[in-house]
């Protein structure tokens, strides 16, 4: 029996136990792992961390709205061949040299096991995932131009991320292991920030996190701030030399956290009303329209 490989997380990437679990399940069952989650929860970075932890090479296939399933397998560079036939010296009867493997093809052809990250699969056309079903199932494909079959020597570990911009087809989902990355809670977030800024003052971090989670709890924000925005903001706070006690009162550098006009207005209103409520807390005040 082959040695079971287990993912344990890496120093620079904080992973929750159930995510680690899901990764190991997908590796053990050799099914693609589909990762969903709010933007900024570290979906893409996960694959890098797995690659480092398992000490395997990482291939990244970035999906764009124009990407076709065929691109991942191979591209037949017919234009180059035509050019060569008219002006070049190369032997155009050898079609093989005009076949360029895509990322999926590379992963199959690789002499050792690799990690393949299919990033943001939901960016592509609706049919895209379905077009890959067969290849991901049997881990091989056929190139009619050369009569070759590219088959995986070692089943690559396939990680797929999605931002849920489109629904993925059921047939595709059935073949995946699914994991939803929760937004980290305060303790985990503190660990994550620590990984990036090891020398951060403790009370600055506590205050910053308090303000950050308060901000996320506001109803009606169009775009909630995420981890990467928090990291930027914390850096801004340190560089700006803001005293910790000012943070949750004023939320300086709000622009690092919020990216929309309306969100600014909502937050400032809330911040203001919170401030006046705190002042009025001792005064017993009646409400009325």
């Amino acid at each position: 029996m082959t040695k079971q490989i287990t993912y344990k997380g890496t120093e620079d990437y904080i992973v929750s136990p159930d995510l680690r679990n899901s990764v190991n399940i997908s590796v053990a069952l050799s099914r693609p792992l589909l990762i969903k989650g709010e933007p900024g929860t570290g979906k893409t970075v996960l694959a890098e961390s797995i690659a480092r932890s398992l000490d395997l090479n990482l291939l990244i296939w970035n999906i764009k709205s124009t990407t076709k399933a065929q691109d991942g397998l191979y591209v037949y560079d017919t234009v180059q061949r035509l050019y060569d036939s008219q002006f070049g010296e190369r032997d155009v009867s050898d079609i093989k040299q005009y076949i360029k493997l895509g990322k999926l093809g590379e992963a199959f052809a690789s002499p050792e096991r690799v990690i393949l990250l299919i990033d943001e699969i939901d960016k592509a056309d609706l049919e895209f995932p379905n077009d890959l079903l067969w290849e991901l199932d049997v881990m091989s494909f056929y190139i009619p131009e050369t009569g070759e079959t590219i088959a995986a020597k070692h089943r690559p570990v396939v990680i797929i991320t999605s931002n849920a911009e489109k629904e993925l087809p059921d047939a595709f989902l059935r073949r995946c292991i699914f994991h939803y990355i929760d937004f980290p809670d305060q303790t985990m977030m503190a660990d994550i920030v620590h990984v990036h800024y090891p020398d951060l003052e403790e009370n600055l971090l506590t205050e910053a996190l308090k303000a950050f989670y308060w901000l996320r709890s506001i109803n009606g924000l169009q775009k909630k701030p995420s981890t990467s925005e928090l990291l930027d903001w914390v850096q801004a706070l340190t560089v700006g030399g803001i005293a910790p006690d000012r943070i949750s009162r004023e939320i300086p550098f709000l622009g690092a956290l919020l990216k929309k006009n309306q969100d600014f207005a909502v937050t400032l209103r809330q911040l203001h009303s919170r401030g006046s409520k705190e002042q009025a807390r001792s005064v017993n005040r009646g409400y009325g329209w």
Partner: peptide, 25 residues
């Protein structure tokens, strides 16, 4: 997955294994 011992013979192991495999949203 159960045959491969991925649930680690515990109910919580089963909970996460079954969720990862069965639930896709």
């Amino acid at each position: 997955g159960l045959n491969a011992g991925l649930a680690e013979s515990s109910l919580s192991g089963f909970y996460y294994l079954a969720r990862a495999v069965l639930v896709k949203s």
